[in-house]
């Protein structure tokens, strides 16, 4: 393994345990921006996905195709568009979002919308058609039937939200163009990596990259573990419920 990578790993671990406030602030800022950005996107993406995945209407496939196509939009192109809209002369210049954390957050929310919409809509429409029939024949209303389908595809939906978070977490274009990478204000992990490369500090850049990857892996791993634990908990819950009903307690 090249020395630079070994040293980068050493530096990464030194950074993690260094107590460097700016480093921790950057990690916190990155998690905050991508986390809130993803949650913000969920507020409109999941209802859109539910409409696309659970109902049939004219033009549905055009809309689905539109969102699917947007998944691959280059972040620099979106960043540039948002820059023009948020700049002082732009349509949304009065909101003063340029070079702010909120600006990056909104940009990332727009960026990840197609991922949540497409993946969730596909998961809902691909759910076993018998689940719909089953809920209906057991007397469920239209809304309850949709809730039953959504419950059956809950973890697929969580997976799409996780993928969206990871996409926002690792993007550079919007963070650079809309956020400006202002040290201590709007810089996130990806802009910090770019900044360190510009300084020629490849080991520190690599250290940031390692931290970035560790967080992405950790988030996905934690979600998988929660999914497994929830399945186990459901079994434990029913055991408890049954014990309580049978023996009192």
């Amino acid at each position: 393994m090249p020395d630079v990578i070994v040293q980068a790993f050493q530096q990464a671990f030194q950074l993690i345990f260094s107590g460097n406030p700016e480093f921790y602030a950057t990690i916190y800022r990155t998690l905050y921006v991508s986390g809130v950005g993803t949650l913000l996107a969920c507020t409109w993406s999941i209802p859109i996905a539910a409409a696309l995945g659970l109902y049939n209407f004219r033009g549905k496939w055009v809309i689905k195709g539109f969102f699917s196509a947007l998944i691959g939009v280059p972040t620099v192109a979106l960043g540039l568009l948002l820059y023009l809209l948020m700049s002082r002369q732009g349509e949304f210049g009065f909101l003063h979002l340029l070079y702010t954390v909120n600006g990056i957050m909104i940009g990332q929310a727009i960026l990840v919308t197609p991922i949540i919409v497409s993946f969730t809509a596909n998961a809902l429409s691909a759910s076993d058609t018998q689940i719909r029939d089953l809920a209906r024949t057991l007397g469920a209303s239209g809304m309850r039937t949709n809730l039953a389908i959504m419950r059956e595809t809950f973890w697929s939906m969580i997976l799409s939200v996780t993928a969206a978070f990871n996409r926002g977490f690792g993007e550079l274009g919007i963070a650079t163009i809309v956020g400006g990478g202002l040290v201590g204000e709007t810089n996130v992990l990806t802009t910090s990596i770019a900044l360190q490369i510009n300084f020629g500090a490849f080991q520190i850049a690599m250290a940031y990259a390692i931290v970035l990857m560790i967080i992405v892996f950790a988030v996905t791993l934690i979600i998988s573990i929660i999914e497994k634990l929830k399945q186990r908990e459901e079994t434990l819950k029913i055991n408890y419920k049954w014990f309580t009903l049978r023996w009192g307690g």
Binding site: Q130, D133, L134, T137
Partner: peptide, 10 residues
Amino acid sequence: TLVFQRSAMF
């Protein structure tokens, strides 16, 4: 209430 040929389960 219909019981399906291929039983559906939540």
